[in-house]
Simulated scan of single mutants.
Amino acid sequence: MMPQEQYAHRSTLSGSEGPHVYKVGIYGWRKRCLYFFVLLLMILILVNLAMTIWILKVMNFTIDGMGNLRITEKGLRLEGDSEFLKPLYAKEIRSRPGSPLYLQSDRNITLNILNEDMKPVTQLVTASDGIRARGNNLEVVSNKGKLLFSANDKEVVVGADRLRVLGAEGAVFPASLETPYVKAEPFHHLRLESPTRTLTMEAPKGIEINAEAGGLEASCRTDLRLDSTDGEIQLKAANVKLPQLPRGSYSPSAPRQNVFEICVCASGKLFLSQAGSESTCQANNNICL
């Protein structure tokens, strides 16, 4: 109950000078409304306190962090699966020792490196249709620091000891190919082919074609030419066969026969000689000198 204050007031308006008593306080429906609001406020405070305790219990708030998030001396540590609805800015992201690091997204994952103007200079996008990388230079280095692959606007460098192309159709080069060594896999054939154009092999100090455990075959549609401007063309083999040479015809009535004999010198040089009733290679023996 609120205290009631009473005080005497002497009226100067009326002729009587008897004291008048005024009562000060809250009575009636105002008093009941005040009690109702005080009770409602106490209920809201209790509900708020209960909700706060429940949230702290559910979110697992402790002095070290909340839920899967822990605050350590080295930074923040997340345990279990974590979902980020907004951009994440961090200096370093790593997994626990001995555990892998998974980055998962329903759309794509984009890694950007920005310059001073906040524009991306290097970008890596992993999407459902493939992986795209953008930058001035792309390098792949082994654990020992050896360059395995490098690509920029000027050239593509493969630093591995061996480049393997596993496709059934091999490798297609629309322009020139510069390499010091071309070798097939063991027990596989090596084939250099140009289906619609010419195949040219050039080297300032010679070209060596070697088949250690098999044969060597060169075929073309029109002409096969072996040119040597300053040197020789040597065919080193136990047998040299020319099975498809045209054969000349002999006629006794013709004064001069259009028949030639292929002669070979001791050095392996081949030359043609006018055919006769006997071998004419000895007559042209001065060519072998």
Rank of each mutant, 00 (worst) to 15 (best):
I71A: 11
D106E: 12
T62I: 01
L39T: 07
S176E: 14
T196I: 04
N137T: 08
V259Y: 04
F173C: 03
S279T: 05
T222I: 11
T12Y: 12
E17S: 15
S277Q: 15
E278S: 01
A151I: 04
H189A: 00
L138T: 00
N210H: 03
S253V: 10
N112Q: 12
I43D: 04
V140Q: 06
M201F: 14
N285F: 15
R221A: 04
G25V: 13
P180Q: 01
E208T: 08
Q123A: 03
Y27R: 09
H189C: 14
D223Y: 12
A127R: 02
G80H: 02
I209A: 12
V141I: 09
G67S: 08
E139C: 09
L103A: 09
L289V: 11
P19C: 11
L46M: 14
E155I: 01
F84S: 02
R225M: 13
D117I: 13
P174D: 10
Y35W: 13
K86H: 11
G206V: 11
L40D: 08
G15Y: 09
W54F: 15
R164D: 13
G135H: 00
Y22G: 08
L78Y: 04
L39K: 12
T110A: 02
I45Y: 08
E79M: 15
A151G: 07
I207V: 14
I45D: 12
G159E: 03
G145Y: 09
Y35S: 10
T110P: 07
F84V: 02
A133W: 05
S16Y: 11
L124F: 13
F84G: 00
C288G: 00
L44D: 11
N286K: 13
S279D: 07
D161Q: 04
G268V: 03
F36N: 06
G98D: 04
S228M: 15
E116R: 09
G98P: 07
V182C: 02
D117R: 10
A127N: 00
V264Q: 11
G276P: 00
A127T: 00
I131Y: 09
G65E: 08
E178P: 02
A275H: 07
Y22V: 14
K57L: 13
P100M: 07
N108L: 15
F84K: 03
L270P: 02
E79W: 15
E73M: 11
V156I: 13
V38W: 07
A160Q: 00
L46K: 15
R132W: 04
E185S: 11
A90T: 05
L289D: 05
T72C: 06
V172I: 14
I45V: 12
